[in-house]
């Protein structure tokens, strides 16, 4: 679920870079998926999560996953705001439970479980821009240890008016009236959005498999001058060097103050075709969940769609894909994906 609409085969061919400070995800009709008795209570985040989760399950041909893990930075922000406003506006009188119940951070994971009657492991990570990656790491460890055969993992965040306007007020989001894309950005702050991206990870390669998730690394704080060493260490741990990376998918988001983290990485990965994706889906805490979708598509097709290319380098056969993301210099994540 993205500002470009739902995930579909023609996604990258039809995508248009966004250039507004705040862009909503295009919503499909949920009626076929969610009964009216339930949908009436659901915020966009819950609906988007359910939709994307079902899409991933359908692609994988799995009806009920063994575990469900969701990453979200702000959780069910819309309902939190709604409940808080009623408290403040009515002096703690006449409050109703629905928005409080739905404000809990684990609502999306819970509603997916409820809908699928999935009694397995159910976790929600809420750590800013590594919320989703925490979930990927957890899922990978459980599959490696043989605890589960498959895990549904996703990231979801929704726009809530007040919260986003506050982020705009302090310059995290570009001001209204500034219409820059990532490529044309001359200012600090970013274009924000919302969305949901889900994956089914499985211990077995199947006919539907896109790619292999090899490793996940999360580090809270690292200096610009240390990032290449961190990446080298990560690659070395996986028996690779910086020359082995064929595709690098970077979290470049157009924030002049922090995109500099990605510059040395581009130099370091000498052979990599450098891709970016936030120009299509915008920035939000769990937006980096879209990066593995890019990796998966590139792995499956053997090449990147032109709209994803940041820096034109000679393309070579795709084997190793490195994903690197950070937000405002914190919460760095590295994912290694391999074709399979």
């Amino acid at each position: 679920m993205t500002p470009q609409g739902i995930w579909r085969p023609s996604f990258f061919e039809e995508a248009v870079p966004i250039d507004s400070p705040i862009t909503a995800a295009i919503q499909p009709s949920y009626k076929a998926l969610i009964p009216p008795a339930l949908i009436r209570r659901m915020s966009r985040g819950i609906k988007m999560g359910i939709f994307a989760a079902q899409q991933a399950l359908d692609e994988a041909g799995v009806s009920t996953p063994e575990a469900i893990i969701v990453g979200t930075g702000l959780g069910c922000s819309e309902d939190s705001e709604k409940f808080l406003r009623t408290i403040l506006d009515n002096d703690e009188q006449f409050l109703t439970p629905t928005s409080f119940i739905q404000s809990t951070h684990n609502t999306v994971a819970a509603q997916i479980a409820l809908r699928l009657a999935c009694q397995g492991y159910n976790f929600t990570y809420v750590n800013r821009s590594v919320s989703f990656e925490s979930g990927m790491l957890d899922a990978m460890l459980q599959i490696h240890s043989g605890e589960v055969a498959n895990v549904l993992v996703g990231g979801v965040d929704e726009i809530s008016d007040h919260t986003y306007s506050l982020l705009q007020r302090i310059g995290y989001i570009k001001p209204d009236g500034v219409n820059e894309s990532i490529k044309t950005s001359q200012t600090q702050g970013v274009n924000y959005a919302e969305g949901a991206t889900f994956f089914l990870l499985s211990g077995e390669r199947t006919a539907e498999s896109y790619a292999e998730l090899v490793d996940v690394h999360i580090i809270n704080s690292v200096g610009e001058d240390e990032i290449t060493a961190t990446i080298s260490g990560f690659l070395q741990g996986n028996g690779l060097t910086s020359h082995d990376i064929d595709i690098a998918i970077l979290g470049i988001n157009g924030d002049k103050a922090f995109d500099s983290y990605y510059f040395p990485v581009q130099e370091q990965l000498t052979n990599a075709d450098v891709l970016y994706y936030k120009h299509l889906i915008g920035q939000y805490d769990s937006c980096s969940a879209f990066a593995p979708a890019v990796a998966a598509t590139v792995a499956k097709h053997g090449a990147a769609q032109p709209i994803l290319r940041w820096q034109g380098r000679p393309q070579r056969p795709v084997k190793n894909i490195l994903l690197y993301n950070q937000y405002r210099g914190k919460d760095h994540s590295l994912l290694l994906v391999r074709t399979c």
């Binding site: 008795a37 209570r41 009188q93 006449f94 409050l95 109703t96 439970p97 629905t98 119940i101």
Partner: peptide, 17 residues
Amino acid sequence: LGLDSIDALELIVLLDK
């Protein structure tokens, strides 16, 4: 109408308000 326990709590507030 298919209402549930959460709706019941909403209706309690409706009576009050």
